[in-house]
C-alpha cells in the first residue's frame, strides 16, 4: 500500500521505523545485549566507518585506522588518568592528538596507491602498537592503563548500559549523517573524482594530494572519536587493543558490513559482536566460526551485508516490475 506512494515516503518510513526500533530496543533487551552487543557495536561501527569512508569515497583501504583509534584512547587515558585532566579536556586532547597523528600519517601515505597504500598503513598501525608496548614510561607497556571511567552527566553515569548505548549510537548516527551529507558537497564530489580518475582531476586543477590528505585526516578524527568511546567502554587501554588481531577484527566488521556501505558497518558490527559473543558458548574454536562467516561473506556476498541488501532490493524491484502490468499512473 505504502510503497505505491512513491520512493521518498517509503524510504522515510523505513528510516523512522529503524530509528524507533533503535530507541525502543534497549528498553526491551537485557542490559547485556544493550551494552555488550549494541553499545559495543555502535562504537566499533564508528571505527569501521572511518575505514569504509576512506575505502568507499577515497579509494584508500587503510589499516592504520586502529592505530589512530589507539592514539585517541591512549591520549584520553594518559590525560584523564595520568594527569587528572577533566573529561571534556581529555576528550578534546584525544581528538586533537588523533587528528594530528592522522595528518602526519596522511602526509606519509597520500602519494601511495593500491597494495602499497595498504602495506604502508598496516606498517603505521603496527608502529603505534609497538610504540605503546615498548614505551613503558608513557603507556605502561603491555599491561596498559586501567582505571579509565566514562564521565557522569549530572546523576547519569555513562558507564550504565542505556546511557552508554544512547551516547554511542547517537554519536555513530551523527558520524554517518555527517559523512553522508559531506559527500554530497563539492568537497565530497571532488574527493570521489580523485578516487575515480586522479589524472583528470589533476588536469582540471584539483590538488589530488590535498584531497587525499584531508580525507585521511578526517577519517582519523572519526577513528579518534571511536577511540574515546571505546576506552570508556573497556575501562582500560593496552597494546593488545591495537595488535594485528584487532586490526583484522575491525576489517572484518567493515567487510561483513560491506566496504561500499557506511550504514553496513552497523550491521557488520552487530553481527560480529553476536558471533564473537555467542559462538564461544558452543565451541572453543570460535575463531574458526568467525573465519567461516567471513569466508562465506567474501564468497557469496562480496559487497557484505550492505551489498546483499541492495542486491535483494534490486531483485525485488525487478520482479515487481515484471509482475506489474503497464503503469496506469
Amino acid at each position: 500500500m505504502i510503497a505505491f506512494h512513491g520512493a521518498p515516503s517509503g524510504r522515510s518510513l523505513a528510516w523512522c521505523s529503524t530509528l524507533l526500533a533503535a530507541i525502543v530496543l534497549p528498553f526491551l533487551a537485557s542490559s547485556f545485549v544493550t551494552q555488550d552487543i549494541l553499545a559495543l557495536a555502535a562504537w566499533s561501527a564508528i571505527v569501521a566507518m572511518s575505514m569504509v569512508f576512506l575505502s568507499k569515497y577515497g579509494g584508500m583501504i587503510s589499516f592504520a585506522q586502529v592505530g589512530i583509534y589507539g592514539v585517541g584512547s591512549y591520549s584520553f587515558a594518559i590525560l584523564a588518568v595520568g594527569h587528572g585532566v577533566p573529561w571534556y579536556g581529555a576528550v578534546a586532547g584525544a581528538l586533537v592528538a588523533a587528528t594530528l597523528c592522522a595528518l602526519l600519517f596522511a602526509l606519509l601515505v597520500a602519494r601511495t596507491y593500491g597494495i602499497y597504500f595498504l602495506m604502508v598503513t598496516l606498517a603505521l598501525g603496527l608502529v603505534v602498537y609497538f610504540l605503546t608496548i615498548s614505551n613503558y614510561g608513557l603507556t605502561h607497556g603491555s599491561g596498559g592503563i586501567p582505571g579509565v571511567n566514562p564521565p557522569h552527566l549530572g546523576s547519569i553515569s555513562l558507564a550504565q548500559p542505556i546511557p552508554e548505548y544512547f551516547l554511542d549510537s547517537s554519536v555513530a548516527f551523527a558520524v554517518l549523517l555527517g559523512l553522508t551529507l559531506l559527500m554530497r558537497t563539492q568537497f565530497g564530489l571532488a574527493l570521489q573524482g580523485c578516487r575515480d580518475n586522479p589524472r583528470k582531476m589533476r588536469a582540471m586543477g584539483y590538488s589530488v594530494m590535498s584531497y587525499r590528505v584531508i580525507a585521511f585526516t578526517l577519517a582519523g578524527s572519526i577513528a579518534g572519536i571511536g577511540g574515546v568511546l571505546g576506552v570508556w567502554y573497556n575501562g582500560i587501554i593496552a597494546p593488545s587493543y591495537l595488535d594485528l588481531t584487532r586490526i583484522i577484527d575491525f576489517l572484518a566488521i567493515a567487510v561483513i558490513g560491506g566496504m561500499e556501505s557506511l550504514e553496513g558497518t552497523f550491521a557488520g558490527a552487530i553481527i560480529y559482536a553476536i558471533v564473537t559473543t555467542y559462538a564461544s558458548s558452543f565451541t572453543d574454536r570460535y575463531n574458526t566460526v568467525i573465519g567461516l562467516v567471513l569466508l562465506a561473506i567474501v564468497m557469496f556476498a562480496p559487497g557484505g551485508v550492505g551489498g546483499l541488501v541492495s542486491r535483494v532490493g534490486a531483485r525485488l524491484a525487478l520482479a515487481k516490475a515484471q509482475l506489474t502490468p503497464a503503469s496506469t499512473e
Binding site: 524510504r11 523505513a14 530496543l25 526491551l28 550504514e263 552487530i270 551485508v305 532490493g313
Partner: peptide, 16 residues
C-alpha cells in the same frame, strides 16, 4: 534507494 534503512532494520531484527 531505501537500502541503508533496510540494512539497519535487518540488523535490528537480528538483534530482537
Amino acid at each position: 534507494m531505501s537500502r541503508s534503512s533496510e540494512i539497519i532494520s535487518a540488523a535490528l531484527l537480528a538483534l530482537f
